[in-house]
Amino acid sequence: MKILNITNGDGAANIIKQSTVVGDVLPWRDPMHHGPFPSKLSLAELGKLRAAYLAGPDADPTEIERDFQLRDQHLRASENYDKITLWFEHDLLDQLQILQILDWFSGPRTQGAILDMICIDRFPGKSRFRGIGELSPEEMASLTELRQPVTDNMLAIATSGWAAFRSNDPRDLLAFLNHDLSELPFLTAALRRHIEEFPDASTGLNRTERQLLGLMADGVHAPQQLFLQNMEMETTLFIGDWPTYRTLDSLCASGLAACNPPPFRFPSYSREKHAAFNMQHLSITEAGCRVLNGMRDAFDLMQRDGWLGGVNVVEFGAIWTWDKETAEFLRRAI
């Protein structure tokens, strides 16, 4: 039997390769919880867009784009496999990858292939389980006992969820969450965390910005410590280091935080420059304190121009916000 194992990145993929698990391994390397995912783009078109976003405005996306192309070629070759197993966990990154992959498999591409999935939120002996990337090869191999068949209903949920995530109207995601999603048991909590990254209707801050400012107010000042302690404030693994540092840069640019010495500098592969990165001192400003304490909002301070799934948060002179009191999305003119 020819087997393909698809998992969430190189860490988990390498562990599967080192284990007794049989088959080829395809890592899904896209950090999907940030950046654009507009609707009506093919897998190839989306890969090109994601490569440009992940490379950044001043870098060449060619290598990343080539990686996406190789991934997609391997995915298209899945019709040559007898069995396909998905290896994932409960956090937002993995749940979005599951949606994209199952949406692709919902088409007539794997007729006759066995499609199953392993998806966990805990592991015996690990009180602070973060993900399958922290398992040993022996522990990873033991997960094969937890394989469950991917049902037609799971494929239908994924197709609807993927469309809702990529919609340019976030209210479509709320409507999707009103359905019975129990066959993908970690999806609801993950998508609700995604919703919290929209600016709050009262403060103008999203959850990550609020947490980082709160940590600065509590005396955490080093950028790496801010990243690590912010991660500890999440119930499941959420944001990586570079998106965290981009958020810190944005908070400094808005005047809600200050960096000494200015301006905020990102980490570098150079040992000397990386040491300088860790020596930066970030602090909350008076304006940041006023926003954090509810004395004013941040709408006129934060210069937003970003995407959450298929939603361009700021568009046509208005910004999408999340009202947690009424649990609804609101448009606010800017």
Rank of each mutant, 00 (worst) to 15 (best):
L143S: 01
A287E: 12
L187I: 09
R147M: 07
G35M: 07
L205Q: 06
T203E: 04
E63Y: 01
S283D: 05
T326I: 01
D169F: 00
P261G: 05
I64T: 12
D152C: 06
I120M: 05
I195K: 01
P31Y: 09
G107R: 02
P108H: 06
N312F: 10
G125K: 04
Q97M: 06
S250M: 14
L301G: 01
N293L: 09
I118Q: 01
T159W: 00
A13E: 00
E138R: 12
R130P: 00
M302K: 03
H194P: 00
G35R: 03
G9R: 14
G112W: 00
F105W: 09
P199I: 11
N260T: 13
Q95Y: 13
K48G: 09
K324T: 04
G125I: 13
W104C: 09
G240C: 08
A318L: 02
R128L: 13
A190W: 14
D60R: 10
R296H: 03
P57V: 08
M295E: 14
Q97I: 11
I3G: 01
N153Q: 10
L330I: 07
F227R: 03
A175N: 10
F238G: 07
E145L: 08
V25S: 01
L92N: 01
L181G: 01
I114Q: 12
A253M: 12
I120D: 00
W307F: 10
T236V: 11
N5D: 02
R304V: 15
V150H: 03
L177G: 00
R130C: 06
D297A: 02
H274V: 02
K2I: 02
V150C: 03
L215W: 02
D67A: 15
G107A: 10
G255D: 06
S39G: 13
S167I: 04
L226I: 01
D241E: 15
G23E: 10
L135H: 04
Q18F: 04
L301E: 07
A318F: 03
G125A: 12
R246W: 14
R271E: 15
V291P: 02
E65L: 08
L41T: 10
D30V: 05
G294D: 07
E134S: 14
C119G: 02
Q97F: 00
P149M: 04
A51C: 03
L282Y: 03
R76Y: 12
K126R: 13
N178R: 15
M1W: 00
S202R: 13
I98R: 03
R128Y: 12
E138T: 09
T188C: 07
W162E: 11
L184G: 02
D180R: 08
T235E: 12
A275T: 10
R193W: 09
I334T: 08
M154H: 08
D200I: 08
S167M: 06
D58W: 02
K126F: 14
I319Y: 00
E232I: 10
I195V: 15
E286H: 11
G47V: 04
Q100P: 03
R147N: 05
T235L: 08
Y245F: 15
K126S: 09
C259M: 08
Q225N: 11
V314Q: 05
G107Q: 06
L93Y: 15
R171F: 00
F105V: 11
P61A: 04
R332V: 11
